[in-house]
């Protein structure tokens, strides 16, 4: 598949192959939306059971890190978009540079979330269980919140780690891609931005709703 106009035998043309790949990743993302759906539903269930206690947990999260991480992912999707545009014009080195920026921003998210935020929360006894540090009538609701929080952010973080691996693979394989043939760059970009979209929903559920009046 080194020839720009070449395509696999089962496709009528290179464009047909590209369209199939793009449709395939969108179908995968649709199943991913359903994968995260029950997590959002669990938030609705858990919060509805005892809203005030659930919000006590939400107010114990680190809003500054949450905001910084949201900005990092938006900037990362932007950087990936620029990289994808550049390879569309055959500018491979520019693509690699912008994709490296996108990778670094994603890695910074992982570092902040798990290296700083989780570590602080675990040291403060916010992991649900016998040693949970919030006491009183809000204890059960706050534990439900942090059960949702740790599970949802771990699952999102796992997706982001997979995205970082895919992005690194695109950067390593950059020599393969041309202005005419760069479908994998497009496909990984859709997955990368989808991770951003999931976070855009998780962010208010974790950090804002509990603080809103």
């Amino acid at each position: 598949m080194s020839d720009a106009a070449a395509h696999e035998f089962q496709f009528a043309s290179a464009e047909h192959q590209r369209e199939t790949a793009i449709s395939g990743i969108w179908l995968f993302l649709a199943t991913e939306a359903l994968f995260f759906g029950p997590i959002f539903l669990s938030w609705i269930f858990a919060r509805h059971a005892d809203p005030s206690a659930f919000d006590v947990g939400g107010r114990r999260t680190d809003l500054t890190i949450g905001l910084a991480n949201t900005a990092l992912l938006i900037a990362s999707s932007f950087a990936y978009g620029v990289g994808l545009a550049l390879i569309g014009f055959g500018r491979r080195r520019g693509m690699v540079a912008w994709l490296a920026i996108a990778w670094a921003l994603g890695a910074a998210f992982i570092g902040l979330k798990f290296g700083v935020e989780w570590r602080t929360e675990l040291s403060e006894g916010l992991f649900p269980g016998a040693h949970f540090s919030i006491h009183g009538p809000a204890r059960s609701g706050a534990q439900l919140f942090f059960a949702f929080y740790f599970f949802a952010t771990a699952l999102h973080g796992l997706h982001l780690l997979i995205g970082l691996g895919l992005l690194a693979w695109i950067i390593i394989q950059a020599e393969r891609f041309t202005a005419e043939n760069h479908t994998p760059v497009h496909v990984v970009g859709l997955y990368w931005t989808f991770i951003d979209v999931i976070w855009l929903i998780l962010f208010p559920l974790i950090y804002l709703i509990g603080r809103a009046s």
């Binding site: 369209e19 793009i22 449709s23 969108w26 179908l27 993302l29 649709a30 939306a33 359903l34 759906g37 029950p38 959002f40 539903l41 609705i44 999707s77 932007f78 990936y80 978009g81 970009g189 859709l190 931005t193 989808f194 951003d196």
Partner: peptide, 27 residues
């Protein structure tokens, strides 16, 4: 804006709409 959904063909729109529909039913 980032995923350029508006530039894709009808199949992609169908999958994206299915995701929204399935999520709406679920939630």
């Amino acid at each position: 804006g980032f995923m350029d959904l508006h530039q894709e063909d009808v199949t992609v729109w169908l999958f994206a709409a299915a995701a929204v529909l399935w999520l709406t039913i679920l939630l």
